[in-house]
Design a protein around this nucleic acid. Structure first.
Lengths: 192, 192
DNA sequence: GTCTATAACGGGATAGAC
DNA sequence: GTCTATCCCGTTATAGAC
């Protein structure tokens, strides 16, 4: 059974996906969690505290759905794993939507908030290196700098496509096609 | 002499670059423009109206600095014009920074604000078609759908790189290199 | 731990004079 | 067209009962 705090954090993730970090209203969060606003303040210091812990919560959850795989399923080839990793973020499921929204909010907020930058830069670096490593498995002969550059482009593109999807500029299906082609394009270059 | 409305919009671009769309306070905007808050509401319907027109304003301005060229300079080749158009958005000047910040904010805000979506989608479409046309001049034999897809990827990548730059995750010089290489990569594919 | 009720305040928007 | 003054609503946060 999830604790009250967890229940509130889950509700917060849903509200943030719907309204954004800066659109989160404590009253709406309370309604979403089925509790009173006062109880929110019993469990969390203030609005900023809610936000910080929610982003942590979302990050942990993303780690789970990105990494975790059915142990009975046959292992993926490097190429499949690459596609899997990148295209997983372009799926219209509640969890991915919530996560992508929060990530986009975090990225956009960091432009005006020094405090967020370091965490964001570190998380981005980890992600880029992960993708670079996967690219390296598919193209073992490619030089490291080329792999790094391709990984930076693919992840930056994913962020761009994700924002266009979430902001209603791009259909999710089309975004996936564009992303898949981008992987092709980059691999073609790395394979020369 | 710029009109009052223009003066306010210029101030709005500066405030948005500093505080973000959601950090824009009408009072701060009034101070920045050197007028009263009431005058803002004389010239604009409401806060959302300010935002919408500012988007239009920065778009027009971007159009200007992207398109406009010294009439005495020799004309650019299609390829040069393509590089020019895309790399201009990755320059550390006040105007570009303001435009990119505002654009990123509007993109992020549109995720949670229906009202902004249509304008943003239209502006994006215009931009994508412009880039697709330039790509078509460099690769006249490429099919239209391939040109459109490449243009969507390049512009989405530019948005992604721009956000990383503005949020302090990526050096501007490196962002330019990545963008330039992306153009190479896409042209290589279109040229097959 | 959880609620109801409300204090306190920030900020969008307007009235009305000039 | 532009200002000063202010209204008033939405939101955060707390007090105090249970």
């Amino acid at each position: 059974m999830a604790s009250r705090s967890t229940q509130i954090l889950e509700a917060a993730a849903r509200v943030i996906a719907r309204r954004g970090v800066r659109g989160l209203r404590v009253e709406e969060l309370a309604a979403e969690a089925g509790v009173s606003t006062a109880l929110i303040y019993y469990h969390f210091k203030d609005r900023t505290g809610i936000l910080r812990q929610t982003l942590e919560f979302i990050n942990d959850r993303a780690e789970r759905y990105t990494t975790e795989r059915d142990p009975d399923a046959e292992p993926l080839s490097p190429r499949e794993e690459l596609d899997h990793t990148l295209l997983l973020e372009l799926q219209d499921t509640t969890e991915v939507r919530e996560n992508s929204s929060a990530w986009g909010e975090l990225r956009a907020s960091a432009v005006f908030d020094e405090e967020l930058r370091e965490d964001l830069a570190r998380a981005t670096l980890v992600w880029v290196q992960e993708v670079a490593a996967l690219l390296g498995q598919v193209r073992p002969m490619a030089p490291a700098v080329a792999l790094a550059a391709a990984a930076e482009r693919l992840t930056a593109l994913l962020e761009g496509l994700s924002m266009r999807w979430l902001s209603g500029t791009l259909q999710i299906g089309h975004a996936r096609v564009l992303m898949a082609e981008a992987i092709e394009v980059e691999l073609a270059r790395l394979g020369r």
